[in-house]
Structure formats: C-alpha cells, structure tokens
Design a protein around this nucleic acid. Structure first.
Length: 271
DNA sequence: AATGGCTATCCTGGGCTAAC
DNA sequence: GTTAGCCCAGGATAGCCATT
C-alpha cells in the first residue's frame, strides 16, 4: 500500500487501478466488492459521509490488505472520524510514526542509490550515452556499448529513475531529467574514491586495447612548489570546464569518451 | 451510575441524469 | 431500456458528554 495522507485517496487509487485493469469495472462493482451499497461508497468518496473504524477494518480486509496495512488504513480513518479526541490523537501519532519510518527507509534507499551511481561509472555512462545518435532504451543495447551486463544496466536504470536523473516517457523510452548535476541523497567520499579508481582502471584498459588514434594519453612529471598546488588544481578545473563546454553541445553524438586528469605527488623533498 | 441531548455513522429506498 | 453515478430523505443505532 502506498503512503497516502487520506484514506479516500487509497480507495480512489484502488478503484482507479481496478478500472484500469478492467474497463467494465465501476463504482458499483467496487461497492459490491467492499460490501457497501453504491450510494454509501459514493458518499464516502465525495466527503459526504465518514467511516467508522469498524467499517474501515471491513473495507481494508475486503481490499486484501496485510495486517499492518489494515491498521494504517483504520488510523487514517480514525484521525478524521473517531468520536473521541483521544482516539483521534492516538491514530495521528501512529500515522506520524509510520510516516517517519517510511521517510527513513526512503532516505536510506536514496543514499544507497546515490552511492552506487557515483561509485559505478556506468551510471554516468548511461546518461552520457543518451546524447549519442541512435541511442536505444534497450538495456542489452546499452550493455553492449558500455561493456557491462544487461542486468547491471537494468538495475542502474531503476536507480537513476529512483533518484530522479532519468524517467520513462509515454512510449516507455528513457529520457534524461534536467538537473544541475547534483545527485539526490548526497555522495559519500568513499564512493567518489571508488569512482576515481574505476576510471583509472578504465584508462589502463584503454591504453592496452584502444588504437592510439582513438585515445589521448599524456603524462607530464614536473616539479612544483607546495604553495602553487591549489592554483594548479584550479587551472585543471578551469580547463576541464572549458573542455566540457566546448564539446558537450546539444546535438547527438556517436561516442562516449572520458576525460580524466590527475595531479598528484610522486616524490617529496627530503628532510 | 443513570439519563437525556446531541452528533455522526450506517443503511434503505427512491429518484434524477447521462451514456450506451 | 439498461446501467452507472450521484443525490436526498428518513430512520435505526452508537458513542460522547454534561447533568443529575
């Protein structure tokens, strides 16, 4: 059962779902299945009448809810219609508790998703692949291009949809969602380290497998003053920004490339 | 504790309108 | 004509609450 603020929303959603599955299903049919008169159900759905906890329990059971869902449904009813203040307050507290639990689960899932997205390079690969000419939403097609398994791609797509970086349009085709580059849920530093390790691994593979005319690998070793390191980092950042602006243009592309630059210490001056 | 007023639920039955 | 959705009236019932 989805989280709704109102028990009427649950009933309407259920009716809607049943009508979707069976075009001949109706409010009357729903009333029959819930063991209510059609007029009574109509009045409930249209805020003309309320429901007692006892009646709510019967309805929830007729909807096939699990025990905890029955209680939650009854609480949503009680908070609106219970006659005693205490019963309404108790139901309200239970609803708040349940909402807090659901929020916690959702936040945790988002954090896990964000962690996976930044730490497994092919998530970003899928998003970049979408800018390619002839992009196909077929996980097998994407998997072949990125060199990972279709299952990994399917899971990655689900994850990207959950965090709101991807969506499916009416034709079930994947679409990137406009965003400012921020991944919901925050990104733990360990996942960023894992991401960089994977990219370096990919660079090593490229050196071994890609022809020279299809890759560009340049390394310079130079002596630097400690106080110049921040400025050097800033210059690399500026270059990468300029580079991406020049090539990340709206038209369709035919390849996905990775530019990765490192500036790190390989030797220190002696004591 | 018993009582009565008040309010809301629950149900029945009938009727209206619109779509098929 | 049938069906569906909605509306209304009216009565039985149940729970709350203040008063006695």
């Amino acid at each position: 059962m989805e989280a709704h603020a109102d028990y009427r929303q649950i009933l309407k959603a259920e009716l809607d779902s049943r009508c979707g599955q069976n075009p001949r299903y109706s409010l009357r049919a729903f009333a029959r299945d819930l063991n209510l008169s059609p007029s009574r159900l109509s009045e409930i759905l249209n805020h003309k009448q309320g429901v007692s906890r006892k009646a709510a329990e019967k309805i929830a059971k007729n909807l096939g809810f699990r025990e905890t869902e029955v209680v939650h449904f009854c609480d949503l009813v009680s908070v609106k219609h219970a006659r005693s203040i205490k019963e309404r307050q108790d139901a309200h507290l239970r609803i708040l508790k349940k909402q807090a639990e659901q929020e916690e689960t959702k936040t945790f899932q988002l954090k896990l998703d964000a962690f996976k997205i930044i730490s497994d390079w092919y998530h970003i690969g899928i998003l970049e692949l979408m800018n390619m000419k002839g992009f196909r939403s077929d996980p097998r097609w994407i998997a072949r291009r990125l060199g990972v398994t279709p299952i990994q791609i399917e899971l990655a797509i689900d994850r990207l949809i959950r965090v709101g970086l991807l969506r499916r349009n009416r034709d079930d085709e994947l679409e990137a969602v406009e965003n400012d580059g921020w991944i919901p849920g925050g990104v733990p530093s360990e996942s960023i380290r894992k991401f960089h390790r994977q990219i370096l691994q990919k660079a090593m593979e490229a050196i071994a497998t890609q022809p020279v005319d299809q890759r560009y690998v340049q390394t310079h070793v130079l002596a630097l003053n400690k106080e110049d390191v921040p400025e050097a980092s800033k210059e690399i950042e500026k270059f990468q920004h300029r580079f991406c602006q020049r090539f990340q243009t709206p038209e369709q592309k035919d390849l996905v490339y990775c530019i990765s630059m490192q500036l790190f210490k390989i030797a220190e001056d002696g004591p």
